[in-house]
Simulated assay, not measured.
Amino acid sequence: METPKVLCYAAMIVAGLVCLIFLLDAAAGILGRNVPLDILFILGGAFILWQGFETSRELR
């Protein structure tokens, strides 16, 4: 695989993990009950996932 593809997929994996962790935190309150911060992290991770998906389509 080429380096841009590896970096794109790695960023998508990390963004997916961020979304998952903060979604679970918003539901269970493990890291504290700061819901607006959880929502902002989920939106940020979702945006990076969307950008990664679009970039991976262009790299094909």
Rank of each mutant, 00 (worst) to 15 (best):
A46D: 00
D25M: 00
I39L: 15
E2M: 10
L24C: 06
L31F: 15
I30N: 04
G16V: 07
V6M: 13
L23Q: 01
A28I: 08
W50S: 10
I30Y: 08
F47N: 06
F22V: 00
D38Y: 06
K5N: 07
T55W: 13
D38A: 09
G29I: 01
A28P: 00
G52Q: 05
F47E: 03
A28V: 07
T55P: 02
Y9R: 13
G32F: 02
R57E: 11
P4I: 09
M1P: 10
L31P: 04
G32V: 01
G44M: 03
E54W: 01
V14C: 11
A46R: 00
I30W: 08
T3S: 06
V6A: 14
F53K: 14
L20T: 08
E58D: 08
C19P: 00
G29T: 02
L31C: 04
L20A: 13
S56V: 04
L23H: 01
F47K: 07
A10K: 11
W50V: 13
A28T: 04
G45Y: 06
L59F: 09
L24D: 00
R33Q: 04
V18E: 05
I30G: 01
A10M: 14
M1T: 11
R60Q: 14
C8G: 12
G45K: 07
V6F: 14
Q51K: 15
G45D: 03
N34K: 07
L23S: 10
R33I: 00
T55V: 11
